[in-house]
Design a protein around this nucleic acid. Sequence first.
DNA 1: CACGGATCCTGATGGC
DNA 2: TGCCATCAGGATCCGT
Length: 271
Amino acid sequence: MPELPEVEVTRLSFAPAIQGALVIFASLGKALRWPLGCPVTALAGRRVQGVRRRGKYLLLDLDQGLLLLHLGMSGSLSFAKSPPPRGVHDHFDLVTSQGTLRLHDPRRFGAVVYASSQADPIAQKLLGHLGAEPLGDGFLLADFQIGLKIRKAAIKQVLLAGDLVVGVGNIYASEALFLAGIRPTLRACKISRARAARLHAAIREVLARAVAKGGSTLRDFSSASGATGYFQLEAMVYGRTGQPCRVCGTPIKILRQGQRSSFYCPLCQAL
DNA sequence: CACGGATCCTGATGGC
DNA sequence: TGCCATCAGGATCCGT
């Protein structure tokens, strides 16, 4: 479900409300992708200092250690003063003095992992290889161009891999490639410097715009306060197989790359 | 060692 | 209505 925009919209929706809260207790439901990494009872008594984001991870800074939250494919967070009783797909509750943060995740590809610090091996394993933050100052065009030059995989796969630039998932990879006029199957190393520059700008543009629209709600995404997103309404290619391209009218095509669907306009995205 | 594919899990959807 | 196959916003791990 959640790519960078959905994760960032989620963060913005509860970070101010949970800031400074005292953890009263925490509880786990069914197993998520990885074990918590500490006794769940050890979280009680800690204070939440703030919420950051790295790629698609949310980092809950505690006065001692931090929690890494990942929403996987189907996860969402809610934050409420009086949450309803836990449902079958609610797998983590962090009950605090200011409200309960709850992870809802039917497919359980998501994760809640404790790390004693960002130098902790588990934090390094999950975050250490991540690429540049596309909306930050560190997403440098020169580095992006070099990164593309040395990768032979299809550009769509390179964007999804997350070791060059983070946060671009299946929706926004297709959307950014459309904006840049690049076919998803084109090998990264074959992209000219000029087109790489277009793609660099397109990634920033599409992600920033999606954040501004509250993310994309395809099936069930909502922020921690329950708000749904609207970006999907203005998708140029994602999920639009057979429908006319919004620019040239040519029917949008779909193809499979690495078990995922890619959408593109055969005319606007020449090669 | 870079790359492609299988894999974890549940729910929704469409064809027969 | 039921049954089966397919697909879904992610990312790690493993074999080549």
